Amino acid sequence: MEPDPRFTLANERTFLTWLSTALALSAGGVAMAAVPPDVFVPWIRTGLAIMLVTLSALAAGMAYPRWRNIQRALRKQAPLPPPALAAVFGYGVAAVAVIALVLIILSI
């Protein structure tokens, strides 16, 4: 059975939002890697950049499988799958933000 087109389009918008999030995380990682060496400790700066780009790869890599699983559930009128990586992204971005905040405060 075909799901209501509104649900299909909402699922597609969510997919595109995951891709936008991946692009923003990737840009943040590149920006963190481009920070001058005298601003943050180099190994911490590199670690933050790696965390951001890794989160970006996860978001981009999991966007389509999530879209597909939700679309399948909509067609079968089954329960929607839980957002498996929500905690990873929430805690990952929070960790990067807290570490960057500490580094900013310490550099003042």
Rank of each mutant, 00 (worst) to 15 (best):
M62R: 15
L52F: 03
L55P: 07
L48K: 14
A27P: 02
Q71T: 09
A24I: 01
A57L: 11
V93D: 06
I50M: 09
V53M: 13
L55M: 04
G28I: 00
I70G: 13
L55Y: 01
A24V: 06
P82D: 11
A49E: 03
P36N: 11
V53K: 05
A59H: 05
N69T: 04
R72Y: 12
G92Y: 03
P36Q: 08
A86L: 08
P82N: 13
L48V: 00
V30N: 10
A49H: 12
A78V: 00
P79Y: 10
L58E: 08
A33T: 00
P65V: 01
L74S: 06
L74W: 12
A60H: 04
R75Q: 02
A63R: 15
A59C: 06
A57N: 02
P82W: 07
L80C: 09
L25E: 08
A34N: 13
L19I: 12
M51I: 00
A73D: 11
P83S: 06
P81Y: 07
G47D: 02
S26C: 08
A34Y: 03
A24C: 08
L80R: 15
G29P: 03
V93I: 10
S56R: 11
L85F: 15
D38R: 10
P42H: 04
A34F: 08
G29V: 00
A63E: 04
M51G: 11
T46F: 07
L85R: 13
V39A: 09
R68A: 11
L52R: 11
A63N: 14
Y91L: 07
A87V: 00
W43K: 15
Y64M: 13
L25K: 12
L58P: 01
T54E: 09
A24G: 10
S56Y: 09
L52P: 07
L55C: 06
I44K: 05
A31C: 08
Y91P: 01
A73I: 00
V41H: 15
P37L: 03
